[in-house]
Design a protein around this nucleic acid. Structure first.
Ligand code: NAD
Ligand code: NAD
Lengths: 208, 208
DNA sequence: TCTAAACTGTTATTGAAGTAACAAGTAAAA
DNA sequence: TTTTACTTGTTACTTCAATAACAGTTTAGA
């Protein structure tokens, strides 16, 4: 299969989430316009995404929910779960730990890393916090695929480099420092920029 | 001035952040390629953004840092600071409170909202937590511009509606439920979708 | 049996964002 | 003083994403 557009992949994640809920209440088929309504997008967008992943619906009956969920799974999941680490076990790191352990998903949180001696060695929601010195060792041992950076910004680049060298293939950077990495997929989420953007668009001049 | 592209606004926030640091060490002028290098983007992108906001540099000397920072301010800031509320004062809400109060910015966190009686009435980093019942009253009284949604997903849409009716003009939704609102700018940040996207792109087939 | 309405699947068009190309002008060096 | 190298500012082009248009198929109902 061709490589999918980023936005499509994000929507596949959304589709799966809402479809799973519908499956629970024993709905069997769904129309593109029903999916669209749930996500506040257009039916065309839905059909196009499904076309891209090669899913065919039944004319006048719509898409078979169970089948669609399972197809999305084969595309965005791994046979084994993706292994994830959180680097920087502070306030935000805690929140993410909590979120990842209580929400069932195809992601498996395997390790935490920090520099604070009081945190190193502790077990939190069954996940051990290691010293950052052990990043190469632990990443390799558990074959960790992805890392979430929630450490102070000034250490982000250096740590990202170490992570990638140790085999990490995807990074989400929540710090405010802007990174550059080679050999791995990088996603930045800069909360301040996001807030300032929203602030800009709240200006009365361009109410939408 | 014309309405700016969303991405440009985000980058303006980045420009300002790095430029402020340079100003502190008494750098006076900067070239587009220097800015570009700091943010890992292209010099053309920088010049184009600055063109859009109508800033002129000096040929062969670059941009006057102080001037540029102040221009960015007039564009993305408010004369008074933007007033922000956090709705849902749980783990993530706490992290955000912490982040917003310790990072100096043009945003002023004014109120927290929750339903938990143990949290209502408490003061945290000088910010009071109110009952969600008082959303209309408090939003209007303090003229709150923006809200961050960090409450359980099933309440997000209803609460968003209330917020907008009370006068909020921008919302960042951190819950996993997908919202639709009219009359305000909405930004969704769905962490699971973001993680699943990164996971997808870590697949060995398309190393970049 | 025939017709019309309702959906799907795909191609074509539009729009937004980023990149490239280059003209114009200035400072520094020769 | 003249030349050269460098940097800005702007227009043109490319790429990616979303939307529109429509052909094709099935089912229900006349
Ligand atoms: N709190 C938020 O809501 C929020 C939001 C967006 C971005 N951020 C960013 O996320 C990062 C963490 O924020 P926070 O509020 O959790 O801060 P925090 O101070 O609570 O946590 C930082 C943690 O990182 C650890 N640490 C320090 N140096 C380290 C290193 N070299 N390697 C690994 N760990 C190290 C610290 O011991 C601490 O546990 C910051 O960069 C912040 O800008 C935070
Ligand atoms: N923790 C994370 O890192 C994280 C990441 C992404 C998204 N999220 C999402 O953010 C939201 C909050 O996550 P959390 O980990 O902080 O959960 P949490 O349970 O710690 O916090 C939720 C808070 O919302 C309050 N609340 C309940 N009903 C409310 C209502 N009707 N109005 C206002 N407040 C109400 C609760 O009392 C609690 O304080 C969830 O939707 C979660 O999916 C969390």
């Amino acid at each position: 299969m061709e490589i999918l557009p980023e936005r499509t992949v994000e929507r596949l994640s959304h589709y799966r989430r809402v479809l799973s809920k519908l499956l629970e209440i024993n709905k069997e088929y769904i129309y593109s316009h029903e999916i669209a309504k749930l996500l506040h997008i257009t039916p065309v967008q839905v059909r196009r995404d499904l076309m891209l992943i090669g899913h065919s619906g039944t004319l006048r009956k719509g898409y078979r929910i169970r089948e669609l969920i399972s197809l999305i799974g084969t595309i965005i999941d791994n046979p084994e779960k993706y292994k994830v680490a959180i680097v920087g076990f502070g306030k935000l790191g805690h929140a993410l730990l909590n979120y990842l352990t209580e929400n069932e998903s195809n992601l498996h949180l395997v390790a935490l890393f920090d520099t604070n001696p009081e945190k190193i060695g502790t077990t939190n929601n069954n996940v051990i916090c290691y010293s950052v010195d052990r990043i190469p060792e632990i990443i390799k041992r558990y074959k960790i695929d992805m890392a979430l950076l929630t450490l102070p910004p000034q250490f982000a680049q250096l740590t990202a480099n170490q992570l990638v060298e140790s085999g990490v293939k995807g990074i989400i950077n929540y710090t405010s420092s802007i990174l550059s990495i080679e050999g791995a997929f990088l996603e930045q989420y800069d909360m301040i920029a996001s807030l300032e953007k929203v602030a800009y668009f709240t200006k009365p001049e361009f109410y939408l």
